[in-house]
Design a protein around this nucleic acid. Structure first.
Lengths: 227, 227
DNA sequence: AGACTGACTGAATAAACAGTCAGTCATCAA
DNA sequence: TTGATGACTGACTGTTTATTCAGTCAGTCT
């Protein structure tokens, strides 16, 4: 029920750390228990002894990572309202392996990841409502959806960190890197958030994308059960 | 050298379609040749006969998907400048399985995906430069980085389509769905692109994120060869 | 007809895999 | 000292995996 809050040096702890590392790097399916055992310098049988099955090990990893992030969140939450959930995530304790693991669960599904994202959206919505009251954030027609969009963009960029690094030279996974190293990501982002992307008078050319200009619902609601 | 441009009904074609479907759904490692053979209604040995190895099959899938997207791109490219590469992608021929496969290669690496993304950034940069000349797009201090950021956000949202669906009720993978169904994604996005997120006078509170307020280069250029 | 090609198959194979088992070793309480 | 507990291991097992092999069969040139 109460997992240890830092991976210790005993067998069980080393196994967990090795599993998070390898699961994050090659995926769960791409990682063998033998490889985990080798990485942790224990026998394969010890993994089963502690965690039962491979799925059990995966569940333990999920729980540990979720705990670590929750813990970190509570620390930074009081400090300063984060513009971006990425910021908070970048300073995790065992950053790189943990983030890699998180990305896997983010893209490959899993209820833990969903709860995490939902929590981030809640936070973002809350912070932006506060910012709106303080006069620094603009109001929105759909504040909840806007918060969701921003979180998704942030976490999506994290999921594509490989391409972010290639295109912008920014390594999201470097836990120790100084904030200046994020410049080429943050500068255009802030530019967009400050001034927008389009000139105000260019609304017409975009109206088409929404079908109707204003009405949120259309006449034909098509329920297409696929297959 | 010249792969067929639509999956035909002969063995090789059915195998390719089955592989794209299953690789996209369960990942390459999570898919057995036996499963592909069953899905395609052929013998396992026929897969090897046509594609040599599992990796050969994967490469053929990569090439087919890349071709399909390139083809689609050339079609829509002349028609209208796309605000968002997502738009173009949503109308692929065999949409759902193809997009699933694309997402896999996007997150799990692969040179094909990198080339694809780079091409999208090129296009976005070009279109926005045109829009700037036409007076509908605002100028940027770093147009290339801005284009990269927008593409990354778009494709990142695609990678997290599962969460987009849960949070916004928008299914990116539904190829036939009408554009209205994207409203809850597009509306806050356009809102942000039109008006921005923050009030103009709130610059101070953000300056910290960039270290220096304006200078793009600092005194200490840190070349940190990682590792 | 006969030689040849390429799509296609069932059966076999060797490796890799997750999980089992019997038992060693240290610690600690009685 | 004894006996129990739990971390830990090497050797084993049954299954699944990709890949190989030895062919069959339908067509197509000569």
């Amino acid at each position: 029920m109460s997992p240890k809050h830092s991976v210790s040096q005993d067998g069980a702890g080393r196994i967990l750390a090795a599993a998070i590392l390898l699961f994050g790097e090659h995926g769960v399916r791409g990682t063998t228990l033998k490889a985990v055992a080798a990485e942790a310098n224990v026998s394969q049988a010890l993994i089963v002894h502690h965690y039962g099955t491979k799925e059990g090990l995966r569940a333990a990893c999920d729980e540990y990572v979720a705990d670590a992030i929750r813990e970190r969140k509570e620390e930074t939450l009081a400090a300063e309202p984060q513009l971006d959930p990425l910021m908070a995530l970048r300073h995790l304790e065992h950053g790189r392996p943990l983030l890699r693991y998180l990305i896997r669960t983010l893209t490959e599904g899993g209820s833990h990841a969903s709860e995490l994202i939902d929590g981030m959206v809640d936070d973002a919505e809350h912070y932006m409502a506060q910012g709106e009251r303080d006069g620094v954030i603009k109001s929105s027609e759909a504040p909840r959806d806007r918060a969701a969009l921003l979180v998704i963009w942030s976490m999506g960029a994290l999921a594509l960190h490989e391409h972010v690094e290639r295109l912008l030279g920014v390594d999201f996974l470097a836990a120790d890197a100084p904030p200046e190293s994020l410049q080429r990501y943050l500068r255009p982002a802030i530019e967009l958030f400050m001034h927008g992307l389009m000139e105000e008078n260019s609304f017409d050319s975009l109206a088409g994308f929404l079908g109707d200009t204003e009405a949120p619902d259309a006449t034909k609601t098509n329920h297409d059960d696929k297959k």
